[in-house]
């Protein structure tokens, strides 16, 4: 039983797990996982805000297309969206795009659709009296949204945004399928090279995902408590 769970393989490849061949080569491993998650998350917040606002617009010619997009994306597996980006993007742009950008595009499209629902719920959670008060001082509807409703809504949305970020961290593992060397991909690489330690390698990778995601989930819980002011009203 001496060979059972020999974590030496982790120690030997630790830097590779964490940052790939960086700085002598491209960023990989956990570093790339976080990079993909952070960039996609920031873009998705922007995308989610835009889609969310469009989806509650009073103008149906704006609302319907955005709802169509949101519901289509929400009805597709993320893997499908990434494949689409992988094969379609180069055709549409008429040039090859780096795989990591393809993945960021896919994750952003996918997550924006979910973020839009957070945005919608966050806005609809603000009492109607707030909009009425703003309108009755003469503010235009977009000003009431921008200065009165959104600042309060955003605060309510932050915990859900963090939760969505946790999902994103886990979802980046699908980048593996198009050959982006994030954490999961690096794990399989090392596994293929060393052959003998799949259990140890995948326990380690699972642990890394878990620790990071758990930390952010806890953060989101703390934020939820700290930021809930409407309960105090």
């Amino acid at each position: 039983m001496g060979d059972f769970l020999n974590f030496q393989v982790i120690a030997d490849n630790f830097t590779y797990f964490m940052i790939g061949r960086y700085p002598n080569g491209p960023l990989g491993g956990l570093g790339l996982t976080l990079y993909l998650a952070v960039v996609s998350c920031l873009l998705s917040v922007v995308g989610g805000l835009i889609l969310g606002l469009l989806s509650i617009s009073g103008n149906r010619w704006v609302r319907w297309p955005s709802l169509l997009f949101i519901n289509t994306v929400r009805g597709l597996p993320l893997l499908m969206v990434i494949f689409w980006m992988y094969f379609l993007l180069p055709i549409l742009l008429r040039k090859t795009t780096p795989e990591s950008q393809t993945v960021i595009m896919g994750l952003t499209l996918f997550t924006s659709a979910y973020m839009s629902q957070i945005v919608r719920a966050g806005i609809e959670g603000i009492p109607k009296g707030q909009t009425e008060a703003a309108l009755s001082t003469g503010l235009k509807p977009w000003q009431a949204m921008l200065y009165v409703v959104l600042p309060q809504g955003l605060r309510n949305m932050i915990p859900s945004f963090v939760n969505q970020f946790v999902s994103l961290i886990k979802d980046t593992s699908l980048a593996f399928i198009v050959g982006v060397s994030e954490l999961t991909h690096v794990g399989t690489q090392i596994n293929n090279r060393t052959m003998a330690f799949p259990t140890e390698i995948f326990i380690f990778i699972a642990a890394v995902y878990f620790v990071i995601c758990y930390a952010f989930t806890s953060l989101s819980r703390v934020l939820e408590r700290r930021l809930s002011w409407h309960k105090a009203l």
Binding site: G129, E132, L135, S136, T137, R155, L233
Partner: peptide, 20 residues
Amino acid sequence: INKLRAEVGFVFQQFNLYPH
């Protein structure tokens, strides 16, 4: 309508101040 509302003040039962 926005111009009209600017000339007409409205006070609500629930105050509706902006909490932020």
